[in-house]
Design a protein around this nucleic acid. Structure first.
Length: 183
DNA sequence: CCCTGATTCGC
DNA sequence: GCGAATCAGG
């Protein structure tokens, strides 16, 4: 596979949209992130305004707040509810790829902030059962570490809130897969 | 260790 | 021109 006009165009587009080299490599296929970076340089495209940010996995408990982070009926059924409010759904995939980096980062941050359950049950590992949320909060090993502990559906290790965080990858997984395949 | 882009240099 | 290896940094 080589740098056809189409692929170069795609590269230009994705690069200008703020995707990282590895993401673009995964998107285009048959090239590594090095190849992408090399091409970017040869094309003189280096230097972007919008760096892509790696969404951080929340590990710190927000102060307990009694906000009714209730749900809104989700058309697609199945999984968890999600908070109303400023959070837009984090759809990884075609949609997210189109979103600009800043918007995506804002979504991630907002999601993290909004997704924290109003109250943690703060259970230790000793009291985890099949129906308690096993979302870790804080630093394992530190005294104040605990698990979310809210009710979870049987068979699902997390409560509705944390399940939403835990089970959302797609583009991310694809990147991971490609990375492993490359190594 | 995960990732990022930048650079070098043999091909 | 290409991109793996390497470098520098978060």
């Amino acid at each position: 596979m080589s740098w056809t006009d189409e692929r170069v165009e795609r590269l230009k587009t994705l690069w200008s949209e703020g995707l990282s080299a590895s993401q673009i490599a995964a998107e285009l296929g048959a090239v590594t992130r090095n190849a992408v970076i090399g091409k970017v340089h040869r094309l003189g495209l280096s230097g972007r305004s919008k760096p892509q940010v790696q969404p951080a996995r929340p590990t710190v408990a927000a102060p307990p707040r009694v906000k009714t982070a209730t749900s809104r009926p989700v058309a697609q059924s199945q999984t968890a509810s999600r908070p109303s409010s400023p959070v837009r759904p984090i759809t990884i995939g075609a949609t997210a790829l189109k979103a600009d980096a800043q918007a995506e980062e804002a979504m991630a941050v907002a999601a993290v902030a909004e997704i924290e359950p109003p109250v943690f049950e703060k259970v230790t590992i000793l009291s985890l059962t099949e129906s308690t949320c096993k979302w870790p909060v804080g630093d394992p090993g530190k005294p104040d570490f605990f698990f979310c502990g809210r009710k979870s559906d049987v068979g699902i290790p997390y409560c509705a809130f944390h399940a939403r965080i835990a089970y959302q990858p797609s583009a991310e997984r694809r990147r991971e897969r490609d990375r492993k395949a490359a190594s």
